[in-house]
């Protein structure tokens, strides 16, 4: 975990910012250098959103360029594919298989490409999970982001204690219990 470029992608409103801040906390707990780059403003209104998380000994640019992400953590199926050109060759995509229809699909202009993940499965490693289903099972549909962080931590070989500590000091106190449950479920999938 010494040097890692993680790209968190999803749909505005899905909680990508909180997810990146948890990782930022993790990096600072581990005494790593870290930079996060966020999207605010216009794009947050239900548009496609991207957050960069970079950690390592010394980080210069907060941006992850095309071909440079070690991991893409996608909160939505289509979005995982939209940014595939940012993934390093041999990189990993962790994807929530939830489908959120974009406007062209809503208005019937084009269909939602349900089978789209098959387009990338032969070029990279794809880990799929239904994070919305898990979040709903624990009666906390808003915790999709933390379920995803759990899965990411496990994939990156981060200990549960470490990621738990980062979550504890990032999420609001009143949502802590639900979020820790979500983290556990994502981690132990």
């Amino acid at each position: 975990m010494i040097k890692c470029n993680i790209m968190i992608v999803g749909v505005g409103g899905q909680g990508t910012l909180l997810a990146s801040r948890i990782l930022g906390k993790l990096a600072s707990d581990k005494n790593l250098d870290c930079k996060l780059s966020e999207v605010h403003g216009m794009a947050q209104r239900g548009g496609s959103v991207v957050t960069f998380v970079k950690m390592g000994e010394k980080i210069h640019s907060p941006i992850i360029d095309e071909g440079e992400a070690d991991i893409i953590l996608s909160f939505e199926k289509l979005e995982a594919v939209r940014y595939i050109n940012y993934l390093k060759k041999g990189g990993t995509v962790i994807v929530n298989t939830q489908q959120i229809y974009p406007m062209p699909v809503i208005t019937g202009k084009c269909p939602y490409p349900t089978d789209i993940l098959s387009e990338i499965e032969n070029t990279c490693k794809v880990i799929k999970l239904d994070a919305l289903k898990i979040a709903e099972e624990i009666k906390n549909p808003k915790s999709v982001n933390v379920v995803m962080i759990g899965k990411l931590a496990k994939t990156m070989d981060i200990s549960f204690e470490d990621i738990k500590k980062a979550v504890e000091s990032t999420v609001p106190q009143k949502t802590l219990e639900g979020n820790l449950e979500a983290l556990k479920r994502g981690y132990n999938l």
């Binding site: 209104r45 095309e66 594919v81 406007m103 939602y112 990338i120």
Partner: peptide, 30 residues
């Protein structure tokens, strides 16, 4: 971005996976 700077000054290009066409997701009124 860094990749462009690298390409224009050293001539090196990053190797990358080619992109896949997917429907656009513009911001919308909530």
């Amino acid at each position: 971005f860094p990749s462009l700077i690298k390409e224009k000054i050293t001539g090196e290009k990053t190797d990358k996976i080619s992109s896949v066409e997917v429907p656009q997701r513009p911001p919308v009124m909530c």
